[in-house]
Write a protein that binds this DNA or RNA. Structure first.
Length: 475
RNA sequence: GUCCCCAUCGUCUAGCGGUUAGGACAUCACCCUUUCAAGGUGAAGACACGGGUUCGAUUCCCGUUGGGGAUGCCA
């Protein structure tokens, strides 16, 4: 039997990190088994489903490289099939109409809470004669769940989970307005789509029991379940804003690479021995349900940063220029061909120091910054009168270096420092400040070689004559 | 309240009855060094607790505690 899985987000908000991981696991599972990975938009809640949310989900999945193998299924478009399924259940006596109003149900729950009883529908209309139905109330349709015994869910992650059927009340299949609920739609669609494995968040584990009963009522055995633990924030509580509960678009904005996100997310809840850096190809080869852990994980930006730094180093220099260009342009830099070429040359030195594309853009800016270079506070402090005078003396020495390349520049600068009776460090930091406007940068001679003789001399002259403005902001 | 799930370094995790409890991130030293990274070496750091089962429990069972989830005419 070929594997068919699905990711089934509801378009009521952005695609968050937990959803992204669920999608990844499904996608990897399908790839590993040569099966199909489908996307189903669970938009049966007409009130809360929105177009922008759908767009955000599609966009996020696309960015992560988790496109589905077939066009997405919009659940609401299958409403007729859902209704037909309910009709069959009604005819078979496996479902019934219930005329309780939302207010009555709320009162029922209140009472149960007050009396510290389990909070669930009491089955009022299960046996009651429909002829007693109150006028002017549109009924919902409820599933006739088993009253006793237990429902057993064999979960590939959580093991055997048993639910007493007294815990499972008669869930609503069709709302009073005739639209299907999630409980019904998932099952009908999973059957229709031929889903073989359901990999989803732990928060659905309870539902799995209800789903299993519905599957059987509809004449099918449930698929294989695998409920993966949820992702928590750094404090162990629910994921909250600023702590990872961001849309995946936010991660893109923060400068993370999709391959880094995939790797990090994969390791959140899944392991293959001690492996940490796992390429997508390798992940496909290795991914299995057995590797999924049962305990929830906390989201950790520090680890994500480190994984991202790794993948940044692996990216081709020209790709990084393209990735960083919009950020530099947004910061007000003009990027023509010469600038792009210079950045590409500089990339090997820059990328090994960056953890995110934000870092990378920030550290790359000085290469294409128009003169005179703004100085950050520390750099400005370094360029005191003595240092400026020293740079003025150094300039002609550097000007004479031929060719204007790393080795010769370094030899000349070191020789100069020695002649002046300076430690090289004493010369290097002011030089760095003059050339980059900062106290931190790639190697000085690499920077010089990339900037070129003319630009280096102009920047030195700016510094020597105190022409540089103070930097407005840190980046 | 009721039901369900979970529990190894700060974090992600390996472990699947007998290990000096391993790795990664973060942290701290030291090395390298023109700064910062990177890299190298090293350090510190965990089996929540209590009962069983067993010759032997991190590992199996039960309980406690602590987290989390569900309890919607949301998904």
């Amino acid at each position: 039997m070929s594997v068919i899985v699905r990711f089934a987000p509801s378009p009521t908000g952005y695609l968050h990190i937990g959803g992204a991981r669920t999608a990844l696991f499904n996608w990897l599972f399908a790839r590993h088994h040569g099966g199909r990975y489908l996307l189903r938009i669970e938009d049966t809640d007409r009130q809360r489903s929105t177009e922008p949310a759908i767009a955000a989900i599609l966009d996020g999945l696309g960015w992560l490289g988790l496109e589905s193998d077939e066009p997405p299924v919009y659940q609401f478009s299958r409403i007729e099939q859902h209704k037909a399924a309910v009709q069959r259940l009604l005819e078979q006596g496996l479902a019934y109409r219930c005329w309780c109003t939302p207010e009555e149900l709320e009162a029922m729950r209140e009472r149960a809470r007050a009396e510290k009883r389990p909070i669930r529908y009491d089955g009022t209309w299960r046996e009651r004669d429909p002829r007693e139905a109150p006028a002017g109330v549109d009924p919902v349709v409820r599933f006739k769940a088993p009253l006793d015994g237990e429902t057993v869910v064999e979960d590939r992650v959580q093991g055997t989970v048993r639910f007493a059927n007294t815990q499972l009340d008669d869930m609503i299949l069709l709302r009073a307005d005739g639209t299907p609920t999630y409980m019904l739609s998932v099952v009908v669609d999973d059957i229709e789509m031929g889903i073989t494995h359901i990999i989803r968040g732990d928060d659905h584990l309870n539902n799995a029991a209800r789903h299993a009963n519905l599957f059987r009522a509809l004449g099918h055995e449930p698929p294989v379940f695998a409920h993966i633990p949820l992702i928590h924030g750094p404090d162990g509580a629910k994921l909250s804003k600023r702590h990872g509960a961001l849309g995946v678009d936010a991660y893109r904005e923060l400068g993370y690479l999709p391959e880094a996100m995939r790797n990090y997310l994969l390791r959140l809840g899944w392991a293959h021995g001690d492996e940490e850096i796992i390429s997508t190809q390798q992940a496909i080869a290795w991914f299995d349900l057995d590797g999924i852990g049962r305990s929830p994980a906390r989201f950790d930006f520090a680890k994500l940063d480190s994984v991202n730094a790794h993948y940044l180093k692996e990216r081709a220099d020209n790709e990084l220029v393209t990735l960083v260009a919009p950020r530099l342009e947004a910061a007000g830099h003009r990027l023509g061909e010469p600038e792009r070429r210079r950045l590409e040359q500089a990339m090997p030195g820059l990328k090994q120091r960056a953890r995110t594309l934000v870092d990378l853009a920030s550290s790359a800016a000085f290469y294409i910054q128009a003169r005179p270079l703004p100085l950050d506070a520390k750099a400005a402090k370094l360029l005191d009168p003595a240092a400026r005078a020293e740079l003025a003396r150094l300039a002609p020495v550097l000007a004479a270096v031929e060719p204007f390349a790393e080795a010769g520049l370094e030899a000349a600068a070191r020789a100069h420092a020695e002649r002046q009776g300076l430690g090289f460090g004493k010369l290097a930091q002011p030089l760095r400040a003059a050339l980059t406007g900062r106290t931190v940068s790639p190697g000085l001679f690499e920077v010089m070689a990339i900037l070129g003789r003319e630009e280096v001399l102009l920047r030195l002259e700016d510094a020597a004559t105190g022409r540089n403005p103070a930097m407005q902001q840190s980046d």
